[in-house]
Design a protein around this nucleic acid. Structure first.
Length: 633
RNA sequence: GCUGUUGUAGCUCAGUCGGCAGAGCACUUCCUUGGUAAGGAAGAGGUCGGCAGUUCGAAUCUGCUCAACAGCUCCA
C-alpha cells in the first residue's frame, strides 16, 4: 500500500507502484492535462517516474516555477526537432529552459534569417498540433555514445555524466535527444511559440571554444498568454532608460564617443542631487572625501598590479616620453593618499570616499546605454582597518547599502564572489578575506548566492545586483576585501604596541557607477522620479497672458523655497501644456488664472492623481518642501 | 571582440522594379488668450551613418567601414 499525501493535506492510497502521471489522472484528467512535472518529497520528478513508497506529492503546472522549466525544456526539444527538419546537417548541443523561455544552441553554417524563423515557428506549431506522446528510455553509455557518432558536443556531454548514472533520452515522433528531463507527456500541451532572437554563444560559455548559434524562444500553453507576454515586453521597452533618457533630456550618446555618455542639464540635476544625498549619509557614517588624479604613471599601475591584470582595459598615454594611464579604478590613488603621512591604530577604521571618474576600455559589444559605459563615476570609498575590524566594517557598509536601495524602493540580490584564476596573493590571505565577507553576511542573515571564481584579482567581493525594466540584473554595489594592495603599497599603521602593522582594506561602492545607478532609476521610476530627484519639480502654467506676471511671482517664491520650478507660458492652450508637462513627468503642475491671482493661490495638479485642487501658495510650498526634505517616494 | 539584426529630418517611421527624398510629431513665424493630456495656417529642416565600386543614373545593388540593438564573453 502506497500513501500519497497531496499539497492540500489529503491522502490517496494505491495498491501498487504507480506513476506520478497516473496519480494526477486519478485525481482528475484535467489535472493531468495541465501537469508538467511533480515535486515528490521536495524533489522535482518526471510524470513518468514511479511512486513506489509513501510520498508527499505536489503536482506542478506551467503556473509553477519548476513546471514552467519542464514546459520550456520540452519546448526546446520541439524547437530542436523543427531545426533538424530544415537544417538536417545542424549539430545539436544543449537546449535548456531559462527564466524567460528557452534556447537551443546549434552548430551550423546555415544562417537563421527571418524566413527560417517563420518556418521554424510554423513547424513547432505543427508538431504540437499532432500532439505526439513523448517517451523516455535509458541506454548504457556505449549505446548512448553510438547514438551521436558525428556530434562531438553530445559525445562530450555524455562523457561528462557520472559513470554510474543511466543515460536517459526522450523521444517524440522519432526525434531523440539526450536529456535528464523532466518533460511533458506530449507535445500538444504547448499552444504557442515565438522565436525571440538569434545570437552567438560560445560552447560551454568559453570564448576559446567555437561560437554556436543560439536560438532564443518562448512558449505558452495558450496563444493568448503569448500575446500578453509580448505586450508586457512592449510596455517594458517604454521604460528603457536609453529611450527615456533622450526623451526627458537626461543624457544622450553620439557616434563620436561610443560608450561615453553626455549628461544634459536634467541629468546633471539628478546626478548632483544623488551625490548631495550620498555626501550627507557618508558624512553621517564617518567618511571623509578626497579626489585623486585621473592620469597616473605606469610605475604606479605596475605596483598595483593593474598593468599586469587589467592592461587591456586601460587607456594609456605618454607624458614627456613616459608611459601613463588613465585610471580604471581609484584605489591606487587612495593608497598614495594613505601613505602621505603615518597613521596610528587610533585612526582606524579610516573611511575615505572618492567620487572618482574612471575610464575602462570595454568591448564594443558590451556597451549598453548608461548601464555599461567606458567612463563612469564610482561612488568609491576605501576603508583602512585592522583585521579585527573586518566584520563590523563590512556589516556597516552592507547596512548602509540596504538603506540606500530602500530609499528608492529598489530590491536587490547579493552574490559572494570568490577567488578567480588569474589573481594575486596567498591562499591564506584569500581564506581570511573570503571568510570575513561570508561571516558578515551570515551574521546579518543576508541571503546570498556564491559566484565561484568571480572575485576581483586582488580580493573576494560581495556584489549587490539590481534589476532593469526587462528583468536583467546589473551589479551596482560591491564590497571588496583586499589584503594585496596594502601589501604591495607597503601601507602601515602603528599599533598600541608601538610596532608597525599592515592594515586591511575594503573597496566599496553603493551606487556602483553613478551612471548605471541613474540608468536603473530611470527604468525603475519609468522616468517619473520622486519629487526630490525630479529635474523640474513644479511647472507654473498661466491660463492666459494676463496671468503671466503672477506666474513669475509664483516661480520666484518656489525658487526662494528651494523648489525647482519653471513657467510654461507658451501661447498654447492649457490642455496642450498640461499634456507636454505630463509627458515630461513633472511631479506638479500649478495652473494659475483669475481665481488664483485673486486668492494668492495655485491650482495644483499632481502627476499621479490627475486631480486639481486649489490651495494657498504658501501651503503648497510648505507641503512640497516637506516632501523633498523627507525624500519621499 | 564574437554571432545575428538595424542605420532615411530633432523624434517615430514610409519610400514598390535602380529614375526629381516623403508623412506625423517637434521646431520657426503669424492668427488664436484658451481653466487641466494635442486650436488653426504658413514656413524652414536631408550629401538617405561613412568611404569605395557597379551603372547613363544608387536611399535602393556589391564590398569595406563606423555606430546602435539582442545575446555570448567580460564587467560597476
Amino acid at each position: 500500500m502506497i500513501k500519497v499525501t497531496l499539497k492540500d493535506g489529503s491522502v490517496k492510497e494505491f495498491e501498487n507502484p504507480i506513476s506520478y502521471g497516473d496519480i494526477a489522472k486519478s485525481i482528475s484528467p484535467r489535472l493531468l492535462q495541465k501537469a508538467a512535472c511533480v515535486k515528490a518529497d521536495g524533489v522535482v520528478c518526471d510524470l513518468r517516474d514511479m511512486a513506489d513508497k509513501d510520498v508527499h506529492l505536489e503536482i506542478l503546472s506551467f503556473d509553477d516555477k519548476e513546471g514552467k522549466k519542464a514546459f520550456w525544456h520540452t519546448s526546446s526539444h520541439v524547437l530542436a526537432q523543427a531545426i533538424l527538419k530544415f537544417i538536417p546537417s545542424a549539430k545539436l548541443t544543449i537546449g535548456p529552459a531559462i527564466d524567460n523561455g528557452f534556447y537551443y544552441d546549434i552548430d551550423t553554417d546555415v544562417n537563421i534569417d527571418e524566413g527560417m524563423i517563420a518556418k521554424l515557428e510554423a513547424e513547432m506549431k505543427e508538431i504540437s498540433k499532432k500532439n505526439s506522446p513523448i517517451k523516455r528510455f535509458v541506454l548504457p553509455r556505449a549505446e548512448a555514445l553510438a547514438r551521436f557518432p558525428d556530434n562531438e558536443y553530445k559525445q562530450e556531454l555524455i562523457n561528462d555524466l557520472p559513470q554510474a548514472e543511466d543515460i536517459s533520452f526522450y523521444e517524440q515522433e522519432g526525434f531523440v535527444d539526450l536529456c535528464a528531463g523532466p518533460h511533458l507527456l506530449s507535445t500538444g500541451e504547448i499552444g504557442a511559440y515565438k522565436i525571440m532572437s538569434i545570437a552567438g554563444a560560445y560552447w560551454r560559455g568559453n570564448n576559446e571554444n567555437k561560437m554556436l548559434k543560439r536560438i532564443y524562444a518562448i512558449s505558452f500553453p495558450k496563444q493568448k498568454e503569448l500575446d500578453e507576454y509580448l505586450a508586457m515586453l512592449e510596455e517594458a521597452k517604454k521604460r528603457d532608460h536609453r529611450k527615456l533618457g533622450k526623451e526627458l533630456e537626461i543624457f544622450d550618446m553620439v557616434d563620436e564617443g561610443p560608450g561615453f555618455p553626455f549628461f544634459l542639464p536634467n541629468g546633471m540635476i539628478i546626478y548632483n542631487t544623488l551625490l548631495e544625498y550620498w555626501r550627507e549619509i557618508h558624512k553621517r557614517e564617518g567618511y571623509v572625501e578626497i579626489s585623486t588624479p585621473m592620469i597616473l604613471s605606469r610605475s604606479l599601475w605596475e605596483n598595483s598590479g593593474h598593468w599586469d591584470h587589467y592592461k587591456d582595459n586601460m587607456y594609456a598615454t605618454k607624458i614627456d616620453g613616459e608611459d601613463y594611464a588613465v585610471k580604471p579604478m581609484n584605489c591606487p590613488g587612495g593608497m598614495l593618499t594613505y601613505k602621505m603621512k603615518p597613521h596610528s591604530y587610533r585612526d582606524l577604521p579610516m573611511r575615505v570616499g572618492e567620487i572618482g571618474l574612471v575610464h575602462r576600455h570595454e568591448l564594443s559589444g558590451a556597451l549598453n546605454g548608461l548601464m555599461r559605459v567606458r567612463c563612469f563615476h564610482q561612488d568609491d570609498a576605501h576603508i583602512f582597518m585592522t583585521e579585527e575590524q573586518i566584520r563590523s566594517e563590512i556589516k556597516g557598509v552592507a547596512r548602509l547599502f540596504d538603506e540606500v536601495y530602500a530609499l528608492f524602493g529598489l530590491s536587490y540580490h547579493v552574490e559572494l564572489s570568490t577567488r578567480p584564476e588569474n589573481s594575486m596573493g596567498s591562499d591564506a590571505d584569500w581564506e581570511i578575506a573570503t571568510e570575513g565577507l561570508r561571516g558578515a553576511l551570515e551574521e546579518m542573515n543576508m541571503p546570498y548566492v556564491v559566484n565561484e571564481g568571480d572575485g576581483a584579482f586582488y580580493g573576494p567581493k560581495i556584489d549587490f545586483h539590481l534589476k532593469d525594466a526587462l528583468g536583467r540584473t546589473w551589479q551596482c554595489g560591491t564590497i571588496q576585501l583586499d589584503m594585496q594592495m596594502p601589501e604591495r603599497f607597503g601601507l602601515e599603521y602603528v599599533g598600541a604596541d608601538g610596532e608597525k602593522h599592515r592594515p586591511v582594506m575594503i573597496h566599496r561602492v553603493a551606487f556602483g557607477s553613478v551612471e548605471r545607478f541613474i540608468g536603473i532609476l530611470i527604468e525603475h521610476f519609468a522616468g517619473a522620479f520622486p519629487t526630490w530627484l525630479a529635474p523640474v519639480q513644479a511647472v507654473v502654467i498661466p491660463v492666459s497672458e494676463a496671468h503671466k506676471e503672477y506666474a513669475n511671482e509664483v516661480l520666484k517664491q518656489l525658487d526662494k523655497a528651494g523648489i525647482r520650478g519653471k513657467v510654461d507660458d507658451r501661447s498654447e492652450k492649457i490642455g496642450y501644456r498640461i499634456r507636454e508637462n505630463q509627458l515630461q513627468k513633472v511631479p506638479y503642475m500649478l495652473v494659475v488664472g483669475d481665481k488664483e491671482v485673486a486668492d494668492g493661490a495655485v491650482a495644483v495638479r499632481d502627476r499621479k492623481e490627475v486631480l486639481s485642487q486649489a490651495m494657498p501658495l504658501a501651503d503648497y510650498i510648505a507641503y512640497v518642501k516637506q516632501e523633498i526634505a523627507e525624500r519621499r517616494l
